[in-house]
Simulated scan of single mutants.
Amino acid sequence: MSIIGSQLKPFTTQAFKEGKFLTVSDTDTLGKWSVFFFYPADFTFVCPTELEDLADNHDTFGKMGVEVYSVSTDTHFSHKAWHDSSPAIGKIRFTMLGDPSGAVTNNFGVMREGQGLADRATFVVDPQGVIQLMEITSEGVGRNAMELLRKIKAAQYIAAHPGEVCPAKWEEGEETLAPSLDLVGKI
Rank of each mutant, 00 (worst) to 15 (best):
V130D: 00
K9A: 10
V110D: 06
K17H: 05
F45W: 08
P162T: 09
V71F: 01
V110S: 07
N106R: 15
S85N: 14
K80L: 04
F43M: 06
V184W: 07
H79F: 06
N57E: 12
R120E: 02
S34P: 00
L177D: 01
D59Q: 15
H58K: 09
D182I: 00
V46R: 13
V124K: 05
G102C: 10
R120M: 05
G109E: 05
Q7H: 11
T13M: 08
F37N: 04
D42R: 10
T23V: 13
T105W: 07
T49S: 14
A160L: 11
S70E: 02
T105S: 11
F11I: 09
Q132R: 15
A168R: 13
V24W: 07
S85K: 15
P48M: 12
V46C: 07
F11K: 07
A118Y: 01
V71L: 02
R150W: 06
L181H: 03
G62A: 15
I4T: 09
C47V: 03
K153D: 12
S78G: 13
T73V: 07
T176P: 04
T13H: 09
N144Q: 13
E113L: 08
K151V: 03
V66S: 02
L30A: 03
V66R: 09
D182A: 13
F16G: 02
V141G: 02
D59P: 02
L148T: 08
V35Q: 03
F43D: 10
F21K: 14
T49A: 11
P48L: 12
R150N: 08
G163R: 11
M111A: 12
L8K: 04
T27L: 13
P10E: 13
G129Y: 05
W33G: 01
G185P: 05
C166N: 12
L54A: 03
P10Y: 12
V124R: 07
V124I: 15
P179W: 09
F108R: 01
E171D: 07
S34Y: 01
A103W: 02
T13E: 09
D74G: 12
A159G: 12
V46Q: 10
G116W: 06
T137L: 13
A88R: 15
H76A: 15
G109V: 03
L148C: 04
P162A: 12
V184G: 01
T29H: 06
V141Q: 12
Q128T: 15
G185Q: 06
Y69W: 05
G116T: 10
D42Q: 08
A168E: 10
E135G: 00
